[in-house]
Amino acid sequence: MLALDQTLAFLAAAVVLTLTPGPDNLMVLSTGLARGRRAGMAFGLGCGLGCLSHTLLAVLGVSALLAASPLAFAGLRLLGGAYLVWMGVQAWRHAGRVALGSGDSSAASLGQLFAKGLLANAINPKVVLFFLAFLPQFVRPAQGAMALQLGLLGIVFTAQAALLFGVLGYFSGHVGAWLTRRPEVGPRLDRLAGTLFIGLGLRLALP
């Protein structure tokens, strides 16, 4: 099971990363702006729940690697740390360059928008790599049941992503206008997420 401090630390990191401007949350905002709050919520909930597929892949992949070789799992953590550092550097380099688009103006139903969000997240290979790099950083081998820890962390991430994306969809009009009036917010969130990525990656080098 997860310890309280472990869960809170992971949740804080997950919330920051979910709110950082990126393809998923900007598509949620764009859909809400173009189609209305119900459409934004449907698309956002689909995006959030799409994380469950990545959780399953991470649990199966990491568990198989650990069963094959604890040394290989240690290598995965190191590679994951390097990947997170690289993502952090990129976030600093390209802070504020992701723009809010025009949204989905098609006549898709709410169910279709939900499925579209679910599929868009589930088939994104970058999200798969992110989960493989991010989740193991919060696993504590001493607590045992590593696969269970990974699964629970993934569920926590999915729950907060679905909630926040749903809220973004509901308030898309207000949030979009607020971001437009405050162009400095996006770069700041990017740099905050970049610092978090780099910190998580470098943590592997500490004793």
Rank of each mutant, 00 (worst) to 15 (best):
1 M>F: 01
5 D>H: 13
5 D>S: 14
6 Q>T: 04
6 Q>L: 06
6 Q>A: 04
6 Q>S: 02
9 A>S: 13
10 F>N: 07
10 F>L: 10
12 A>V: 12
13 A>L: 11
20 T>D: 09
20 T>R: 01
22 G>Q: 12
22 G>H: 12
26 L>T: 00
27 M>F: 14
28 V>F: 00
30 S>C: 01
31 T>K: 02
32 G>C: 02
33 L>Q: 14
34 A>Q: 09
35 R>A: 15
35 R>V: 08
35 R>H: 04
36 G>E: 03
41 M>S: 02
43 F>C: 11
44 G>C: 05
46 G>A: 05
48 G>D: 03
49 L>W: 02
49 L>G: 01
50 G>R: 01
52 L>K: 05
53 S>K: 06
55 T>R: 11
56 L>M: 14
56 L>K: 09
57 L>W: 13
59 V>E: 06
59 V>T: 02
59 V>H: 10
60 L>K: 04
61 G>R: 07
61 G>K: 09
61 G>W: 03
62 V>S: 12
62 V>G: 06
65 L>K: 07
65 L>R: 08
66 L>T: 13
72 A>Q: 10
72 A>V: 11
75 G>P: 06
78 L>V: 13
78 L>F: 14
80 G>E: 01
80 G>Q: 11
81 G>I: 00
81 G>D: 00
81 G>V: 02
82 A>P: 12
83 Y>T: 00
84 L>P: 08
86 W>N: 02
86 W>I: 00
86 W>L: 07
87 M>T: 05
87 M>V: 05
89 V>A: 13
89 V>P: 05
91 A>C: 11
93 R>N: 10
95 A>I: 12
96 G>R: 01
96 G>D: 07
99 A>N: 08
100 L>G: 07
100 L>S: 07
102 S>R: 12
105 S>R: 15
105 S>T: 15
105 S>D: 12
106 S>P: 07
107 A>W: 05
108 A>V: 11
109 S>G: 14
112 Q>G: 13
113 L>I: 03
113 L>M: 06
114 F>H: 00
116 K>P: 07
117 G>Y: 04
118 L>S: 04
120 A>N: 14
120 A>P: 09
121 N>I: 07
122 A>L: 15
126 K>D: 09
127 V>E: 10
127 V>N: 09
133 A>F: 06
133 A>Q: 06
134 F>P: 10
134 F>S: 08
137 Q>K: 10
138 F>I: 08
142 A>E: 15
149 Q>M: 02
153 L>D: 11
155 I>H: 07
156 V>C: 15
156 V>Q: 09
157 F>G: 06
159 A>Y: 09
159 A>E: 07
161 A>I: 00
161 A>C: 10
162 A>Y: 06
167 V>F: 12
167 V>D: 05
168 L>D: 03
168 L>A: 07
170 Y>T: 09
175 V>G: 02
176 G>F: 03
177 A>W: 12
177 A>S: 14
178 W>D: 03
178 W>A: 10
179 L>T: 03
180 T>Q: 14
181 R>G: 08
181 R>C: 10
182 R>L: 11
182 R>F: 13
182 R>N: 14
183 P>H: 08
184 E>F: 09
184 E>C: 05
188 R>W: 13
191 R>K: 06
193 A>G: 05
193 A>S: 13
193 A>Y: 03
194 G>M: 04
194 G>T: 03
195 T>F: 06
197 F>H: 06
197 F>A: 02
202 L>I: 05
203 R>V: 04
203 R>K: 13
206 L>Q: 04
207 P>C: 02
